[in-house]
């Protein structure tokens, strides 16, 4: 088994009100210097070594992310 990490983030042009709310909370906590926060999803998959990159990208692009609104990266551990 190998650990594969898929990170999914809202596309830059998609308004991310959840990230903005986190940024606002940081400001209220008195923490300065954080210009922007974007919130995404992090998936950890334990997959058989025979699973190729194309399959991993199919998993990411067809299910874990919605390509209309999100970008993703696939990283083998």
């Amino acid at each position: 088994m190998v650990r594969v990490v898929v990170n999914v983030m809202p596309k830059p042009e998609i308004l991310d009100p959840q990230g903005q709310a986190v940024a606002g909370a940081l400001a209220r906590l008195g923490i300065s210097g954080v210009a922007d926060v974007r919130q995404g999803k992090h998936f950890e998959l334990d997959v058989d070594e025979s699973v190729d990159d194309e399959t991993l990208h199919r998993i990411a692009g067809n299910l874990l992310a919605n390509p209309v609104i999100e970008d993703w990266t696939v990283t083998r551990g």
Partner: peptide
């Protein structure tokens, strides 16, 4: 249908 539905802007 095209497009997507995401979190309300007011959360």
């Amino acid at each position: 249908l095209p497009g997507a539905l995401v979190r309300n802007s007011g959360l």
